[in-house]
């Protein structure tokens, strides 16, 4: 019963992430795309946490933890790269 409920929640969040991909694909500036990727990543992280409890496999939680760290590093690194001088916006 609880598993089915969690599966439905995970499906809704995945669908949500697909809608967020719209912003990552067509965002007018590169910063919009980074923001969209960050949001999709947060939702994927939550889906991984939900999968842990749907499958009752504890090691997925370690995956979620590493995913959170990686997401943070990726976003900050790309933002720092984008604010460097002499970088041209590619249309």
């Amino acid at each position: 019963m609880m598993d089915d409920f969690l599966t439905v929640i995970a499906l809704i969040i995945s669908l949500n992430a697909v809608i967020c991909l719209y912003r990552a694909a067509v965002g007018p500036t590169t910063q919009d795309r980074v923001l969209g990727v960050n949001i999709v990543g947060t939702k994927a992280l939550v889906v991984v946490v939900l999968v842990t409890f749907i499958q009752t496999e504890s090691f997925f939680l370690d995956v979620a933890l590493v995913y959170a760290l990686l997401l943070f590093v990726v976003t900050v690194a790309v933002s720092r790269y984008l604010e460097a001088e002499g970088w041209k916006e590619v249309a």
Partner: peptide, 19 residues
């Protein structure tokens, strides 16, 4: 994970806004 998200999402927003 929850505490880290609380820190990291604010910092990510700051980084994107600054760039």
């Amino acid at each position: 994970i929850a505490c880290f998200l609380l820190l990291s999402s604010a910092t990510c927003g700051h980084a994107i806004g600054r760039s």
